[in-house]
Design a protein around this nucleic acid. Structure first.
Length: 426
RNA sequence: GGAGAGGUGGCUGAGCGGUUGAAAGCACUGGUCUUGAAAACCAGCAGUGGGGCAACUCACUCGUGGGUUCAAAUCCCACCCUCUCCGCCA
């Protein structure tokens, strides 16, 4: 969340920046925020003064109790009057605090300076392009058709045991998923400097709040009846590893990688991507998280992006890098690059990774801090990016590596993980 | 599931109604000593928020939330979490 103190210091800056994110009534929300903040502080001042008096009388009482019964009674009466005044103020304080929180929790991060301004994805900018896409001398089939032909996928049974937007991968396709996970994590740990973690995929409400999924995006999340939440991305677990901590300066940066199943309700996506495994309630994703001093965050974002890109390059999949516009970015992000992979059957690029800097937006919610060189506690910057989404990588491989006879060539770098070079009918 | 124990500052750990926001140790920072370092010694060192240009000052915080009391880390209640033993089990 945004830092209230900073908003106080430069209201116009925040109004301007928030307007770039097309938040409804952002100007009046900020006004309301500051208005209540001022009232809150006034009450706080009064309350603290009363508390001060209460405390000092209390101290006197500890002396008077052995001296004068009369004085003791008089002071006791005084202190109980003060107490009722305090509790009156406290009600107001809670009221103002709630208004402030409601606004503060709902405001998105402000965009970085070089983020293109646009209401939606039409304003996204292509940063670079990996080169030409493959030209087929036959009509490329969709991953769904290919996988069905090879008897490597079963939607019907998955629907029967779970419902729509679930899938069962079979045999070589199940193995391909496992191979991709191992391949990606191996690259990130041995070449990209990330440490591997195996993290919980059920998390508490505090963690979901910390990374920004709650309270605003409750309807997109799966919740258990024990007050736990299924993570929509391992960013939640990984980033929250520094929640409530004060990290030593010399321990930074922290770089984490994990692969977990991710769960998304896809409530707002009815009718979208209903064919194949493009949009599932459950999918695996390799996630990269960097925790770093805020001043290095943009450099770290470029690094993170490169780490994710490396996977696509190694798999020799055609892709492009998009810089997302202010209106298309996620709630917690200040700047986001999407990696989009070429999908032959759709004749377009589709998102396969999203790399974001969240500046101090999440750390402010999580109370994730570090000790500066001069021994001060400051908020950390958090970054995350997919490296990559496994389901969509499977789609990309099936479609881009398909042969005329319906077989699938296995990318060079995966052959040792698959112990074969070709997936075919036999 | 049954029976116990416990949650205190970056860490370890004392305190169990009244200058205790908290002893002691470790870690850390500064200083003395030293050619330099180590050791030793001296000093400093929790967080959040309010007020103030600042020095500083005030409030709140000893798992969380309530309660008792003039006064709570300390007593009571609820909840959360951790640990040990037994049972069950991947």
């Amino acid at each position: 969340m945004l830092n209230l103190k900073e908003i106080r210091k430069d209201v116009d800056f925040f109004k301007k920046k928030l307007s770039l994110r097309f938040v409804n009534n952002s100007d009046s929300l900020i006004e309301e925020l500051l208005n209540n903040d001022e009232k809150l502080r006034k009450c706080l001042e009064e309350q603290q003064e009363l508390q001060n008096r209460r405390n000092s009388i209390s101290k006197d009482l500890s002396i008077e109790k052995d001296r004068s019964v009369e004085n003791f009674k008089k002071l006791s009466k005084e202190v109980s009057d003060i107490k009722s005044e305090i509790s009156l103020l406290e009600n107001n304080i809670l009221k103002f605090q709630e208004i402030i929180n409601n606004i503060l929790f709902s405001l998105p991060n402000i965009p970085a300076d070089d983020v293109p301004v646009s209401k939606d994805d039409t304003g996204n900018k292509e940063v670079r392009n990996s080169g030409s896409v493959k030209i087929f001398d036959f009509k490329p089939l969709s991953h769904e058709v290919l996988a069905r032909q090879l008897d490597l996928i079963d939607f019907e049974t998955a629907v029967n045991i779970s419902g729509s937007r679930f899938v069962i991968l079979k045999k070589d396709l199940a193995k391909l998923e496992r191979a991709l996970i191992n391949f990606m994590i191996d690259v990130h740990t041995s070449e990209n400097g990330y440490s591997e973690y195996n993290v919980p995929i059920l998390v508490n409400e505090k963690s979901m709040f910390g990374t920004g999924q709650l309270p605003k995006f409750k309807e997109e999340q799966f919740q258990t009846n024990n007050n736990l939440w299924l993570i929509p991305t391992s960013e939640v677990s990984l980033t929250n590893m520094v929640a409530d901590k004060i990290v030593k300066y010399e321990d930074l940066p922290l770089r984490f990688v994990a692969c977990t199943p991710c769960f998304r309700l896809e409530a707002g996506a009815a009718g979208k991507d209903t064919q194949g495994i493009m949009r599932q309630h459950q999918f695996s994703k390799v996630e990269l998280v960097s925790i770093i001093q805020p001043e290095f965050r943009i450099k770290e974002l470029d690094r993170l992006l490169n780490c994710a890109e490396k996977i696509l390059n190694l798999l020799k999949l055609p892709y492009r890098v998009m810089l997302l516009s202010s209106g298309d970015m996620g709630f917690s992000a200040e700047k986001t690059y999407d990696l989009e992979v070429w999908i032959p059957s759709q004749n377009k690029y589709r998102e396969i990774s999203s790399c974001s800097s969240c500046s101090t937006f999440q750390s402010n919610r999580m109370k994730a801090r570090y000790k500066t060189i001069d021994n001060k506690n400051e908020l950390l910057a958090t970054l995350n990016g997919s490296g990559l989404a496994i389901g969509r990588t499977i789609i990309a491989i099936l479609e881009n590596y398909q042969n005329k006879n319906g077989s699938i060539t296995i990318p060079d770098v995966l052959q040792k993980y698959m112990s074969k070079k070709l997936i075919d009918n036999i």
